[in-house]
């Protein structure tokens, strides 16, 4: 059943495996809902117009910009943030590789980077260096110059390929 127009409504969604129900303003972005209402501050807010990638989260398994989706639109969705991916160990190897290769400095872009790269690793078994760069082209990092991030992704790919054989 569809509800009529309203400036706020109750949404029920699954966030990092937990069912939550809250009343949200229609104008609230998903990322602000996650950070301010649910205190999940792992996801960051940067440019707020979809360019920097810091707010990237997963909705129904897909990486999306948390600043370009309204919280009311996530009603009924399964949302996962960097906290959720971390807790279930899904990207432990990638995070380890980030540490080993110094793929972060200030860390502001890192949660969005991890979400973006996690999707790349699921979609492609052996992306080239160019394909990795293409995949993270929508995530800005002002510290590392990207080389170390691409190195970390390659290190993770090599380790996963080794485990698979």
């Amino acid at each position: 059943m569809s509800a009529g127009p309203d400036n706020a409504r109750v949404v029920t969604l699954t966030v990092n495996g937990e069912r939550v129900s809250r009343r949200v303003a229609a104008r609230a972005h998903l990322v602000d809902f996650l950070r301010d209402t649910l205190d999940l501050t792992g996801t960051h807010v940067g440019c707020e117009h979809g360019v920097c990638g810091a707010c990237t989260v997963r909705v129904d398994g897909m990486a999306v910009r948390g600043c370009l989706m309204l919280a009311v639109q996530a009603d009924g969705a399964v949302v996962e943030t960097v906290e959720g991916l971390t807790d279930r160990g899904a990207i432990a190897d990638l995070q380890e590789a980030f540490l080993a290769r110094n793929a972060l400095q200030c860390g502001f872009c890192t949660p969005g980077m991890l979400i973006t790269i996690a999707e790349l690793l699921e979609r492609e078994a052996a992306p080239s260096r160019a394909a990795i760069r293409e995949a993270i082209s929508g995530n800005y990092c002002r510290c590392t110059g990207y080389q170390a991030i691409v190195d970390a992704v390659e290190r993770t790919l090599a380790a996963r390929a080794g485990r698979a054989t």
Partner: peptide, 20 residues
């Protein structure tokens, strides 16, 4: 910046969209 205030509707059939 944050979006201004607005109302939101999520119709499930096209006829509702036309009404809105």
């Amino acid at each position: 910046m944050k979006a201004p205030d607005f109302a939101y509707a999520r119709p499930t059939v096209l006829s509702e969209v036309f009404d809105l």
